[in-house]
């Protein structure tokens, strides 16, 4: 198969051709609509139809472009911030910071900021924001 670097935008020539043709046709339609409106034998229904068809075609071309854009943009491995919570065994003081290599749950950590007693890592987790509330959850 043909090799290509993933970061380069790869829009296939066929799609390009299709988009260009669609845009051209829609432009012609819009011009025709303009001509119809300005002409002496004004036919409003025809003008409306032409306008509508032109707009729909232009919209679909734009949509196709956005889709291909999106696919390229998606080519990244998702990563969420990982948080480490440190808790003091004596006073219960909790602090949260970003995960560092070497952290693990129940590892003894630096001295407590408040009372100077040893602390442990109580939690390491990733927070995910639900994009939408799912239906049928019960």
């Amino acid at each position: 198969m043909q090799e290509a670097s993933p970061d380069r935008t790869r829009v296939s020539p066929y799609i390009w051709l299709l988009v260009i043709i669609t845009v051209a046709v829609s432009l012609i339609l819009l011009l025709l609509a303009l001509q119809e409106i300005t002409s002496d034998t004004k036919d409003e229904t025809l003008a409306t139809y032409l306008l509508l068809a032109g707009a729909v075609l232009l919209g679909s071309a734009a949509y196709a472009m956005i889709q291909t854009r999106k696919r390229v943009f998606r080519a990244k491995i998702e990563s969420h911030p990982i948080m480490t919570t440190i808790e003091c065994k004596k006073c219960g003081f909790k602090s949260t910071r970003e995960f560092q290599r070497g952290d693990y749950i129940f590892k003894e950590s630096e001295k407590c900021q408040k009372c100077g007693n040893p602390t442990i890592i109580a939690a390491i987790y990733r927070e995910v924001k639900e994009k939408e509330k799912e239906r049928f959850t019960s």
């Binding site: 491995i77 998702e78 990563s79 990982i82 995960f99 290599r101 952290d103 749950i105 390491i124």
Partner: peptide
């Protein structure tokens, strides 16, 4: 995608969801 994020977690030594029982 799951393996990809697993790989990152393993490389950094972060606890993963499968570790719930161990936790």
């Amino acid at each position: 995608e799951a393996y990809a994020s697993a790989l990152k977690a393993f490389a950094y030594g972060q606890p993963i969801g499968d570790g719930a029982g161990a936790l």
